[in-house]
Each structure stands twice: as C-alpha cells, then as structure tokens.
Design a protein around this nucleic acid. Structure first.
Length: 288
DNA sequence: TTCAATGTTTAGAC
DNA sequence: GGTCTAAACATTGA
C-alpha cells in the first residue's frame, strides 16, 4: 500500500475537500470490503456529514456526524487500494492507478460515496486487500492507541526511539522498522531507504548496532519520511496522489527498486536479499 | 509457467 | 511466552 507519506498526502487532500459535505448515498459493490458489516454501514453512513480526516500510521480516519451519533470510518488501502475523488468533472486520485484504468467507476471500484455537492469518492482496490470499517469514537481511539509513535510527530525523539530499541534488542533492524507497534507508518520502501541513509545493514539485530547507528537510523527515518511527504509520496509503478499527480519522491530514492545499479555513495553494486520475508535492496559495502 | 509486488493478520513451528 | 516463518487474501506483469 501506500506508506505513511502517501497516506498523509491523501489525507491532506481529502481534509481540504471533504469536511462539511453530506454523504447523500453510498453504494457497496463488494460487501466483503466493509469489514464492520455492510448492512449497518449503509444505514449509518447515508446522510452523515464529514467532520474531518485524520491519519494514524497508514490508516485513514474519516470522522462523521451521523444520526446515530459520532462515528469514524476507517479506510486502509493495504497494497493496491485507491481513493478517487471526482469533483464534478475533474478527477482527483489517491492510491494506486491500475495501468490503463483511469476512469471511475471501473472493475476495481468496490465502494463509492456520493456527496451533497455532486462530488463522488471511489474506493478501488485491485487486490481487494484493503478495507473500510465503521466504528465508534472510543473504538477508533483504541485502534489508534495500538500503534507505535508517529515518526513525524514531536514525540518521536531520539530518546524515544532508543527506548523502543531497548525493548527490541533481538529484532532485526528491518523488522523493527516494519513493526507498526514500534514506529507507525513505515513500509518496505522507506525501511530500505532509512537503512541506507543510516548506513545500517537491515538484517542486523538491533542489539548489534552501535548507539551512533541507532541515532543515525532515527534521523534517517525522519529525514526520509519528511522528504517524501514534501514531494507528495513515492510513485512506484501505479501510485498517484489525490490530485492526480505522481508523487515525486521516487527520484530521491537511493536503493528501493535499484537492485543491480551502483550505490550512490560508494559505487558498489546494490544487492537484493530477503529480510524478514520482504524483498530488501541494500549496499553490502557501506551498510554495516 | 513461475515469481514477486507499497500490507497485515494468523496459524504453526521451534 | 517469545519469536520467527510461511501462508493467506486476489491480481497483474515481468
């Protein structure tokens, strides 16, 4: 799926457009996508007003004012989920565009919302891994609380990161980065990028790397994610952000998708291995 | 034809 | 109990 920078980009665009709109009608074409139950979903969501759009880790929280009281619509895009907002004529995309499929609805459209101003929000997902879930405010809070620190928040200090490391000495570096209950929102691309910038071998155990490397890793996580948010995310294969533009972080990447190419730091050929079950590209010369 | 792909959860093994 | 791996979800494209 989109990782933190991509989901954050989508969030910002939705937050700029959705609050205040009333959902006139919701259409569910693939009921299994609504994991809180499609029947109740229709009843609660129809007529609801969008209050605001938030993000925790890679999960979107659409706060709603409904006849039944406040509710939160959770949207997870997983690997190929896509949110497309059509503003009367203009298409606004967020997620992954499937090659050649640029109109909505299409065969990957599973749910769509029609708003009071005629805008329509489509949820598309080629692989059908993504989901929508309607919960109460307290449920949403407990879901949010289960995630680890937000890496771009002020609370993610070097000290806080070192504390996290202390409790995960046996974990491989890459496993720690991908663990959403440690640091929230990092996926495969940014895990590899952060390890490269910190000169850390992603297969090493946390306990094996020096304090200085841990500090570098902390800095690299923030650097890489912030840079990507600034450039509206990474367009890998099919992703585009909510305004229909490709994310521009791709050109700043150092390792992901560069297997067999020379390392930008030392010139050695980048290799690709499997670490904690995920394809991992890194430089065995400068990442120790 | 086989494999890997931006994610998460779960079952099973040690 | 902790920790790790593989599989599962469904589809596409190399």
């Amino acid at each position: 799926m989109p990782e933190l920078p991509e989901v954050e980009t989508i969030r910002r665009d939705l937050q700029a457009r959705l609050p205040g709109l009333i959902i006139n009608k919701v259409t569910v074409l693939l009921p299994k996508i609504i994991i809180s139950g499609p029947k109740k979903f229709d009843r609660v969501v129809s007529g609801a007003t969008i209050v605001r759009v938030e993000r925790r880790a890679k999960l979107l929280f659409l706060h709603l004012k409904t006849k039944q009281g406040p509710r939160v619509l959770l949207i997870h895009l997983k690997m190929t989920g896509q949110l497309v907002l059509t503003q009367k004529k203009d298409k606004v995309f967020g997620g992954h565009i499937i090659a050649g499929v640029t109109s909505v609805p299409n065969r990957y459209t599973h749910v769509f919302f029609e708003f009071s101003n005629d805008d329509v929000l489509y949820f598309n997902d080629l692989r059908q891994f993504g989901y929508l879930k309607l919960v109460t405010e307290p449920e949403a809070q407990s879901i949010a609380a289960a995630y680890g620190l937000e890496p771009l928040d002020a609370g993610f200090t070097a000290k806080a990161f070192l504390e996290i490391c202390k409790r995960r000495e046996n974990k491989k570096v890459k496993a720690l980065l991908l663990d959403q209950t440690s640091v929230a929102g990092i996926g495969n691309i940014y895990a590899d990028e952060a390890c490269f910038r910190a000169r850390v071998n992603p297969a090493r155990r946390i306990g094996e790397i020096s304090l200085a490397k841990k500090r570098s890793l902390w800095r690299a996580i923030r650097f890489v994610l912030a840079l990507s948010v600034k450039h509206r995310g990474t367009t890998f294969s099919t992703y585009v952000s909510v305004d229909g533009q490709a994310g521009n972080f791709w050109r700043y990447r150092q390792v992901y998708g560069r297997k067999g190419e020379p390392c930008n730091r030392c010139g050695a050929i980048l290799n690709k291995t499997v670490v904690v079950g995920r394809g991992t590209v890194w430089c065995s010369t400068c990442q120790r």
